[in-house]
Computed example of a mutant assay.
Amino acid sequence: MSGPLINKFVVVGIGLIGGSLATGLKQRGACREVIGISRTPQSCADAISHGVVDRAYTSLREVASELGKGDIIFIAVPTLAVTAVLKEIQEVIDPAVTLTDGASVKGSVQKAAESVFGKVPAQFILGHPIAGSEKSGVTAANPNLYEHHRVILTPLENSSPEHLQQVTAMWQAVGAEVLSMSVEEHDQVLGATSHLPHVIAYSLVDTLAQDIGNPNIFRYAAGGFRDFTRIASSDPVMWHDIMRANKAAILASMDLFIDNLSRLRASIEHEDSEQLLRVFSRAKEARDDFTQMLAQRAVHKRLN
């Protein structure tokens, strides 16, 4: 890289997602300066002391006059908090500044932008990094979190090609693969592949912890349980917001899962061995195909 890709990178919400992008850009020399925005002074102080940002403030208003073309604001707050951030942006930020976000639900962000601006402004490129961790907070920031992970951008008809290119280059600078799809397809796909597994993991752990009532239930849990339920340690506030924001897609996926689970229960109850083997074999084959696809993707990236 001949010089910094970004002048000032402003991250609103200095947690895992925003902090990881900030440190990733800093370590790779992709921006001249990182500025953090958090509602709490302690979070600002922590972000500075951990080297996640160069300076930090509790409001965008404190840095708005500094920002212009070549600067990026990354909104990394819980999904239902995006509207408040956009209201502040609408009041104080220059239209030349590139805006993007990392929310897991794009339909709700689009509606929030439309409610604030009248329509999604050309400078605002909606996005979602498909990476994360069960850890949260500024201390969980990982500069390599996005390497070899996908980022989905959902540009609209009026999205500025210049701002789109700026956001694409930003993610590529931290090692991510950038893809595009529609807002509707994104929320449907993520509702099934990300949001539904979190619903299941949270529900399973809650069932075992609260309803079964056996004090040894976790003591003898094996590695499979640990791996499957890891995501139930994710930030409850973030996932609470996601469930509300992507309600329709998540409910549709849950209904399909519940129907299949009911049929599987009937197969067990009636000792329908043929159906049990059919479901388990089909699932194993699909999972093996997925594993092979990931392995091939990893080899391709190493070769390129």
Results as ranks from 00 to 15, higher is better:
residue 226 R to V: 00
residue 120 V to M: 02
residue 279 V to T: 12
residue 184 E to D: 11
residue 61 R to L: 05
residue 239 W to E: 03
residue 283 A to H: 11
residue 45 A to W: 00
residue 64 A to Q: 03
residue 47 A to K: 05
residue 256 L to N: 15
residue 195 H to C: 01
residue 182 S to K: 07
residue 259 D to G: 04
residue 111 K to W: 01
residue 52 V to D: 08
residue 233 S to Y: 12
residue 121 P to N: 12
residue 144 N to I: 02
residue 36 G to Y: 03
residue 114 E to Y: 10
residue 289 D to C: 02
residue 142 N to D: 15
residue 196 L to I: 01
residue 209 A to W: 01
residue 37 I to V: 14
residue 235 D to S: 12
residue 269 E to T: 13
residue 257 F to K: 14
residue 215 P to F: 04
residue 285 E to F: 07
residue 242 I to A: 03
residue 190 L to I: 15
residue 191 G to H: 03
residue 54 D to G: 12
residue 16 L to D: 00
residue 173 A to D: 06
residue 82 V to N: 03
residue 244 R to N: 12
residue 143 P to A: 06
residue 117 F to D: 09
residue 89 I to W: 08
residue 255 D to K: 15
residue 141 A to F: 00
residue 166 Q to K: 14
residue 1 M to V: 09
residue 170 M to I: 02
residue 152 I to G: 01
residue 3 G to L: 13
residue 90 Q to T: 01
residue 159 S to L: 08
residue 280 F to N: 11
residue 173 A to I: 03
residue 17 I to Q: 15
residue 133 S to R: 07
residue 68 G to D: 09
residue 61 R to C: 07
residue 143 P to M: 10
residue 274 E to M: 06
residue 208 L to Q: 11
residue 135 K to A: 09
residue 221 A to P: 07
residue 163 H to A: 15
residue 278 R to Q: 13
residue 2 S to Y: 01
residue 239 W to S: 03
residue 141 A to M: 05
residue 37 I to Q: 06
residue 208 L to W: 06
residue 230 R to C: 02
residue 271 E to I: 06
residue 167 V to S: 11
residue 111 K to C: 07
residue 292 Q to W: 04
residue 233 S to K: 10
residue 157 E to F: 00
residue 65 S to T: 08
residue 34 V to E: 04
residue 153 L to S: 05
residue 204 L to R: 08
residue 227 D to M: 01
